[in-house]
Design a protein around this nucleic acid. Structure first.
Lengths: 330, 330
DNA sequence: AAACCTTTTGAAAACGTTTTCAATTATTTT
DNA sequence: AAAATAATTGAAAACGTTTTCAAAAGGTTT
């Protein structure tokens, strides 16, 4: 690749001038400016990012730290992140941590020495120490699909309201005995979804059917086992609220394997509106998270933080959930 | 972050010496070596990648160019890539092109100015001009899940054999009237899968049921429509071979929507063994691609190319396909 | 103990930029 | 038209490394 000196030579100006037309920091007389632009074009010159970053210029690279790409919901959010990143000339480096603190540590280290401009975390059980440290060092940090505290920027769903709506929708369909297949209560969002579910039941004057409520479920297989157990115990249930679509998938399998029909015998509502929800049998009624939009908003905000002169005050953007009605509820 | 001079000062040596203990290029007397290591540790020093890259040192960053993360099969392959990258201290920047040549061009440009060490392409309809140019410029380029020509390194599946096996499996179950829901023949792998299907039929002395064969299908929705049309035309069929799992999903929906049962009335076999295949109803019999392993192998090979002194001779690694039997075939 | 190799070390140049500073050129004011 | 001011420019230093080169230190051999 051509360097700035070649461009300067060809345009018959000094490297400083070339730098100036690129950076737009100082005016350059129109004639030279045109020559420089022409030379840049002819040589297909692009400034060397390493050299720039050495001078304290942003690298236009962000680190996206997630538990695992191999997941029903993250890819949509990642796409949102990446699309706005690209539109702003940013590149995103992808880091899977499997919620493993050591891998997270490793990535933070390598990313820092790679002079990344900012971090975007989408991990559920994160080592919050890491985040705090990063913030203290002055790195822009954004949280996506999770939140830490009032001091941290985040883009999240209104999980409470989503679960509240889901439960109310079930109730509105005349379903009163609603089991819950939920994730770990240590993860804030599952705690909130649980709260939304309880509120709706309470408002309806119903009490939580404890024998049909299970927490700490991770993934479709565990959900399958949990639902099977509940059903085998002959708990009287007419619907399941699975707090993620992959759990819903497992629950549906369990119901069918026991020879019951959906939604004839038991209704199922999920959470996430993953891409596959539409293609299940029956198509899954679920609570939609605007994943793509949330990813985009988080990235947008992160870039604003990166490019802001002074620190921007922390803000938590809470996106509304929406139940999308398909055929898995009576 | 501390810089090399601070480390040098603290260890009471010159920066050159610090560089030498880090790089391992020259021997350093044990005593100083220990002091340097201690200083590095105390200051939590990590060399600045930009400064290193300016000196021609590798950045340990690779660009992974894919059509879209939001896809049934790619995340598994991406995970494979990323895991071996991490194990070698490499970071991977993710680029979604949507098979759009302009986005691809954009990414190649930004990645080049970011001094990426090598490229990994996983796009089906790629602008091969771009790849050729990159190779000509001396960039290590690796193809994953697709191949270009004998001059390019690639990790691919043996699609022909996979389709051949799938078709033979159907045949072995006594299914003789096998429809095909296939992707675009412009994409090499769909052409090969088609060839495998034809070979199996031919060997069995059967001819291709043209009214039940459709190409150019992209995604579950299109597959749904195609299968519905074939079924509505009362084409006599007892099985469908869908050449990807998302197509299989659409085909299954179509069959069920017409009140037919799987595999009772019509059997279905897919291709890919996506994570969700297991959780469908019925669990989908499909041809497994070792996606994770292929991603890992491609990344391994790319890193070897990057770190090799001289160019390594192009090689195409062809992984075997395997049919995984579940319940969607009689 | 002198002469010679080896090994180990530090100084300085280089990588490709940006930016400060001073010099030059252009413009305005008198 | 000269003086004063403003706009534009180039030279050089700086960013944090690695590496070449030459010097210093340490060992051998005589």
């Amino acid at each position: 690749m051509a360097d700035i000196r070649e461009v300067a030579k060809r345009a018959n100006v000094s490297p400083s001038t070339v730098s100036r037309v690129l950076g737009g920091t100082t005016r350059v007389v129109e004639e030279k400016r045109a020559r420089v632009l022409a030379a840049i074009d002819e040589l297909d010159y692009r400034p060397n990012v390493s050299a720039q970053s050495l001078k304290g210029i942003r690298t236009r690279t962000i680190g996206l730290v997630i538990p695992n790409v191999r997941n029903l919901v993250l890819p949509a959010a990642i796409r949102g992140v990446e699309d706005v990143a690209r539109n702003h000339g940013y590149a995103v480096v992808l880091c899977n941590t499997d919620e493993d603190s050591e891998k997270e540590q490793f990535y933070i280290k390598t990313l820092k020495s790679r002079l990344i401009d900012g971090f975007l975390f989408t991990t559920a059980k994160i080592n919050s120490h890491n985040i705090k440290d990063l913030q203290a060092e002055g790195f822009p940090v954004m949280l996506l699909l999770r939140e830490l505290d009032e001091q941290s920027h985040a883009v999240v769903l209104d999980h409470y309201n989503g679960a509240y709506q889901a439960t109310n929708y079930l109730l509105s369909r005349g379903l009163k005995k609603i089991g819950l297949v939920n994730g770990s209560l240590d993860i804030k969002l599952y705690d909130e979804r649980y709260a939304g579910y309880r509120s709706a039941l309470k408002e309806a004057g119903l009490k939580v059917p404890d024998e049909a409520v299970v927490h700490g479920i991770d993934g479709g297989i565990e959900a399958y086992r949990a639902a099977t157990r509940i059903l085998l115990n002959r708990v009287d249930i007419d619907a399941f609220f699975a707090t993620s679509d992959d759990k819903a998938l497992g629950v549906m399998r369990a119901i069918k394997d026991l020879g019951l029909s959906i939604p004839g015998d038991i209704s199922v509502i999920g959470f996430d509106n993953a891409d596959i929800a539409l293609l299940l049998d029956p198509p899954l009624t679920t609570v939609a998270q605007p994943l793509y939009e949330m990813g985009a908003a988080a990235c947008q905000q992160l870039i604003e933080m990166i490019e802001a002169k002074q620190p921007v005050t922390p803000q938590i953007q809470r996106f509304p959930a929406e139940v999308v009605i398909r055929n898995s509820v009576k």
